[in-house]
Design a binder for these strands. Sequence first.
DNA 1: CCCAAGCCGATAGATTTTCTAAAGGCTCAG
DNA 2: CTGAGCCTTTAGAAAATCTATCGGCTTGGG
Lengths: 293, 293
Amino acid sequence: MTRLNLNALRVFSVVARHGNLQHAADELNVSRGAVSQRIRRLELDLGVVLLQRETRGVSLTPAGERCRAAIDNALGTLETALVDISGAMRVDHVTLHLGPSTAAKWLMPRMKAFSDRFPGITLRTEVHDRILSRNLGRNEIAIWPGKAADRNPTHRTQRLVDIRLVAVCSPDLMLPHTPMALDELVDLPLLQDAHRRWDALFGIMGQHAPRKVLNFDRAALALDAAMEGHGIAIAPTYMVERDICQKRLVEIWAHPDPTDDCLFVSWSGEHGGQRHLERIVDWIQSGFEDGAR
Amino acid sequence: MTRLNLNALRVFSVVARHGNLQHAADELNVSRGAVSQRIRRLELDLGVVLLQRETRGVSLTPAGERCRAAIDNALGTLETALVDISGAMRVDHVTLHLGPSTAAKWLMPRMKAFSDRFPGITLRTEVHDRILSRNLGRNEIAIWPGKAADRNPTHRTQRLVDIRLVAVCSPDLMLPHTPMALDELVDLPLLQDAHRRWDALFGIMGQHAPRKVLNFDRAALALDAAMEGHGIAIAPTYMVERDICQKRLVEIWAHPDPTDDCLFVSWSGEHGGQRHLERIVDWIQSGFEDGAR
DNA sequence: CCCAAGCCGATAGATTTTCTAAAGGCTCAG
DNA sequence: CTGAGCCTTTAGAAAATCTATCGGCTTGGG
């Protein structure tokens, strides 16, 4: 490749700092012959002499001084940025990718429990409206709904739970009785998210359209509206579990069958040393077990 | 080597700019497989995914965006500096290394002639108190005094001239007669540089010490003092030639024998395409020929 | 004056990295 | 359904990098 070898520039920077090829070689874990050759090649490529060879060690020529200043500036810029970028490289930083409603309704109520369980881990969430299509990097976990496990061979995947739907509303919402039959709900104000699950249910049953359905683009928003007495929301069980426990919502109907979808968790299988991820995955799994936590 | 491959970062920068591995490969003159492998290796080394593979081309992940910004900053810093440093790489920039008095007394009077002869060449002088011990880079020429030609195999060297000494003074300096014999000078105010040539001369001849010798650390300074009537300076002929022509100095004595030293010119023989340097060397050579210019 | 220490440079060959060529896969538009 | 336009992977070749060894120079201490 005819362009300047940037790796050789870094070698030069280390030599410049030490003023000594042997010490630079020690730091770089290579032989002093390797360093000598590298610098020589760099000088030929640049067409300038960078080092004044002394009897003990080397000093910089004026061109060498300028080169060193530039390299150190550039490397400083890079290192600062790469530390930020590879904050994720740190074992104690973990990124969790999940849907916005799963984040709001499943994860947020559990953040304190997570922090107590993994005090040394910094959890960073990245919220996605659709399933992440790229590979997961080191220290990345994804929770995602789907019909079948991920085919990506670089990922490890576990099924968390079948997605079951329930209808919930505020305990203050005046109803004839609870629980209720599905056909009894059709005349009540209904709330649904972008999956349009009420429409799907009533469509399947061939019943006449519900009297009134309010649409939200997020399940979490529909559930918040339900808590405020605006109607009956339909959502996966794992999203309402905590609000039910806290008596902010009551379950008034449950779909007798699970949906076609499951919730899955995936993480990268490529990068070494990820036992800590598996412990986090186990914790997530346990958070989905029926009646747990 | 366990540290990050900086060359791979540059590959990534090109990919990021094109948003397309094939086009990046075209620019880098490598195959698209090579680029793909490079990026893959980089992602594994960093532990983050930098590119979102689309059906046509790639886009950057958030980490990829940050990485790209950092690399482009760093590469920008480097390129700007390396253009300056390798200004000397440009065929039209030539660096001439020489002694301070040679610069002042031989080169400066000829700068206009040089510029007229080589209008497209930018001559940069670097002045050294002692012979440059490092290798010459591309587009570097050195003029230096010595007893034998340079043994450095990477250099080409030519002998310019034998160093002959003369005594000069201001035309206004009242003297019994000119020329004068050496022993007649002993009672006159003498001026010498760091070589202490008067001391050496009189020491060799076993004569009593001169009445008064003023010492300067530069031959040029001694010559300037001579021009101002402060005494008789001793210096190599090539340093006084122009001032004699301009009648600022007169030659009142010449050493019958040359010294042991010659003046040499060297330039790098390693770098290709240096015919222009040889033309400059020829011009320098012609400037030392007896009676020339 | 001699010798050891502390440096750097060069070379031949081993090892690692980089690259090529070829094959395969995916999506999308016609 | 097919071709175009991308990316990925693999085996092996080519190039770069490195090691080990030898050699050279300067300097300081004995």
